[in-house]
Design a protein around this nucleic acid. Structure first.
Lengths: 140, 140
DNA sequence: GCTTTGTTTGCATGAATGTGCAAATATTGC
DNA sequence: GCAATATTTGCACATTCATGCAAACAAAGC
C-alpha cells in the first residue's frame, strides 16, 4: 500500500480514493505495473502487429524466412522485429539447426492483457466489474 | 470466413489451421482486428501511460492542468497527449466552461483488452482457453 | 471592453525508429 | 575445407515523434 493509501486508511475514511490526479499519481496500484509501455511499444508498429497475428494464427513455431514471405519487408527487418517481440515477452524463439523458430507466448500474453483489464475495471468508480462495492476502490 | 478457411472447409479436413505463415497471413481472424497498432501506439509512450494510470486511479474527470501537475512535462505536451489518447479511444473529454475534463473509458478499454486476450487464446493450438477442442481452431 | 485563467496550436529541435542493402556469422551437407 | 542456406549485424537514410516555448484561442469575471 502506498503512502497516500496508508494516510487515508489511518483517517478511516470509507472511500479510499485519491481526490486529485496528483494524489492518484502518488498512489501506486496494480495498473501502474500492468500498463507497461514496453509491451505496447513492441506491438505499436503495424508490421510487428501483423507478424504477431500471422504467427499466432499459424499456431506453430515459424522461421524468420517463412514469416518474411508473408510481408513486404526485408528478411533482416523481420529478424529485427521478431527479436524485439521476443525481448518484450510476446514471442519465444527456439533454434533448430540453421533455423530459428518463433512462436507466440499465448498464455502469458493473454494473461497479461486480462490482468490489465481487471486493473482498469478495479479503478472504475461506477463498478464496471463486479465485486467493487465493498467500500474503497481497487485502484490502490 | 476467409478464402483460405473456405478452401479448407470444402476439403473437409478435420483441423482448420493454416499450415504456413503465408497462409495464416491470408487467413483473416478476430485477432487481425483486435491487435490494433493504433491503440498500442497511444499507450506505448511512458508519459502517456502514466497519464492514463493517473486519471484511471483518480476515478473522475481530470482537467488538463490538474493532470499536468502530476508529471514533469509542459501543459501543452499534456494537452497533446490527452488528445492523442482520446483519439485512440482510451479517454473521453467533456468541456465544462474553461475546463476540459478527461476520463478513462474503463468499460470500453477493458472489454477491448479481454476480447484481444480471447482472440489470442483462440489461436493457441494446445487450447490455452477452454472450449477449443471441438475440432478446428478459433483463429479464423 | 479588459483581464485572468485554461487550453490549444505553430514552430523548431533533438532523439528514436523503421527500413534496405551489404557484409558478417552460423550451421548443415558435400 | 568448401559451398549453400538461414539469420544477424553494421551502416546510412528518411521519417516519426516527444518536447518546450511562445503565441493564439476560449471562456469567465470585472
Amino acid at each position: 500500500m502506498c503512502k497516500y493509501c496508508i494516510m487515508v486508511h489511518l483517517s478511516s475514511q470509507p472511500e479510499v480514493r485519491p481526490g486529485t490526479p496528483a494524489e492518484a499519481a502518488a498512489c501506486c496500484g496494480p495498473i501502474d505495473r500492468l500498463l507497461d509501455p514496453a509491451l505496447f511499444k513492441a506491438l505499436c508498429d503495424p508490421t510487428r502487429a501483423a507478424l504477431v497475428a500471422c504467427i499466432a494464427k499459424c499456431g506453430r513455431g515459424c522461421s524468420v524466412s517463412e514469416v518474411a514471405a508473408c510481408c513486404s519487408v526485408d528478411t533482416s527487418v523481420v529478424s529485427r522485429h521478431l527479436a524485439t517481440l521476443e525481448k518484450a515477452g510476446v514471442l519465444t524463439s527456439e533454434r533448430d539447426g540453421r533455423v530459428v523458430r518463433y512462436s507466440v507466448r499465448y498464455a502469458d500474453l493473454s494473461a497479461t492483457l486480462r490482468a490489465l483489464a481487471d486493473a482498469i475495471d478495479a479503478c472504475c468508480p461506477e463498478g464496471c466489474a463486479e465485486g467493487n462495492e465493498e467500500g474503497g476502490c481497487g485502484c490502490c
